[in-house]
Amino acid sequence: MKKSAGREALDRVRTMRQAPTEAERLMWGALRSRRLDGLKFRRQVWIGAYIADFVCIEARLIVELDGSQHVEADDYDRRRDTQMASLGYRTLRFWNNDVTGNLVGVLDAIRVGCAERLPSPSHRLPAAGPSLSLAGEGI
């Protein structure tokens, strides 16, 4: 029996999560659990017809780590980035050796990329929780 396309995609994502490259392992260690400026990142996320290595939904930012197989994949990467842009995402690409050799610099670039895409703090929705408003307090 042939697997459905959705099932194949899910299996592929699971495999990619279970066998990350060294660069992906380092990057995920730095991004997971809101470790980068409190931003929520997810890994190996299906968006459109592609699987994004890392994505911050709030900033609509995709982070792709490219190994040597991408040296000859310019057209593929360009089509992929164009589709992601049509869905409202910006893609930042880094070589694996940049991540392993200069993780701090890569994280700084991601930080800047997210800051450019997020609304200013004064325009963000307030966090859930009790109101600190003085209205109705007799003041």
Results as ranks from 00 to 15, higher is better:
V63T: 06
Y76S: 08
Q83G: 00
W28G: 01
R34Q: 14
T21N: 07
N96S: 13
F94G: 12
T21S: 12
D98L: 10
N96K: 07
L132S: 13
A85M: 04
G101Q: 14
K40Y: 13
H70T: 11
N102A: 15
V112T: 13
I110Y: 03
A19P: 03
V45H: 14
A19T: 15
D74W: 07
P126K: 03
V63Q: 06
A59H: 07
L31E: 09
A19L: 12
A109D: 08
W28S: 01
V112L: 13
V45W: 12
L87D: 01
L134F: 11
R79K: 09
V104L: 10
A49C: 04
D81P: 03
R43Y: 05
A128N: 09
G38Y: 01
E22V: 06
G138A: 15
A73L: 08
R80T: 00
N96M: 07
E116P: 04
L31S: 06
R25D: 11
R93A: 04
I110D: 03
Q69M: 07
P121K: 15
T82G: 02
P126A: 06
I62Q: 05
I57Q: 04
R35Q: 14
I139M: 15
L31I: 12
N102R: 15
M84W: 14
R117D: 00
L36A: 09
I57S: 05
P126H: 05
